[in-house]
Structure formats: C-alpha cells, structure tokens
Amino acid sequence: PDISALGANTGFVSVSNFQSGTDKVQLTGTVRTAADKNGDASLSTASAATNGVNIGSSELVSLTSVVSGSLTDASLASFRSTLGMLTNSSAGASMLVLANNGTSSGLYQVIDTNGDGQVAATEARLLSIYNSTVLSLSDVNLG
C-alpha cells in the first residue's frame, strides 16, 4: 500500500523482529513501480555518506552516515539533515533511501520535486521503520 504522505511522520509501517540477512523487504505495487525507475526488474544500489547521494544513478541508496536522533521526528528533519544535498538531481528525480540511527532502520522515498538537490519535508516520505535492526541493501528487493 501507499503509506504516508510526503513530509508526514505518521502512517508508516512499523516492523519488529526483522532479521537482517534472513528476512526480505518486498517492494510491490506503486512503490515497486516508482523504485524500479529503469524497468529492469532489479534495484540499482549504492552506499553514500551525507551530501554524497547521487539521485541520478541509483534506485536504492544506503546512507553510511548514521542519523543522529529519531528516524521519525517532525518533518523527518534528522533523516533529511543526514541525507544532506543530493547530487546529479533533476526535477522529479526519485529514489529510495535506507537510513539507520545505529539501532533501527528506516526506508524512505525521496522525490526532488524541483530538482534543486535540497530535500524539503514535502519531498521525503517514510515508508517503514525496522525496530532494533540495521538493514543492509541486500535486505530490500522488488516483489
């Protein structure tokens, strides 16, 4: 299902007891379609630090910089601060971002509506939180 509205810190799926390396996040429906930008039925992935995320080249990015604070705070401010500026952006560019605060993980959708590389609250959506586990890129795939 489509989860929360852009910029909202409510309406996301909260998952407990997820086992990284064993369990899988299966993207389906409109989230799958949006994630698979080139339609090749697989996710192009990358890892990047703050201010190093290339929105033009990857469909799923894992932030190597740890989010300081809450993954679900108002306007998703802590996540957006850790994400920083996007590179190689254009109007409407989108991707999924996997972030963690050292304890739990969040899966976010980012849409750079105006292509300026700055992610405003209205350009980030929290899809799901994975409590007490840090996910890796291999934990997420297309369903």
Rank of each mutant, 00 (worst) to 15 (best):
Q109Y: 11
N38V: 09
N101W: 08
S65Y: 07
L76H: 02
L60I: 06
T87C: 09
A48V: 04
T103N: 14
I55V: 14
S62N: 07
L86K: 05
T64V: 08
L96K: 02
M95V: 05
S81I: 07
E59G: 01
L63N: 07
A93G: 07
A49W: 10
T64S: 15
G102T: 12
S68T: 15
D112N: 14
L98M: 10
A121H: 02
N51A: 09
S90P: 08
L98R: 01
V53H: 03
N88H: 11
A93S: 15
T50Y: 11
E123L: 05
S65I: 10
L43S: 01
L76W: 04
T72L: 03
T45E: 03
L76I: 06
V67E: 06
S90M: 11
M95E: 05
G52A: 15
L83D: 09
L86D: 04
S42K: 13
S75G: 06
Y108E: 00
T113W: 10
S78Q: 15
G39C: 10
A46N: 09
L96V: 04
N51I: 06
T72M: 06
D116C: 05
T103L: 13
Q109S: 10
K37G: 12
N101I: 09
N101E: 08
V67A: 10
G92A: 11
S104L: 03
S90I: 07
L96T: 02
S81Q: 13
I111Y: 10
G106L: 06
A48F: 04
V119D: 01
L86F: 12
S68F: 03
S58R: 00
N51E: 10
I55W: 02
A77F: 07
D116S: 05
S105D: 06
V110Q: 02
T45H: 00
T50L: 12
G56V: 08
S70H: 09
G102Y: 06
G39M: 11
E123D: 13
L98Q: 01
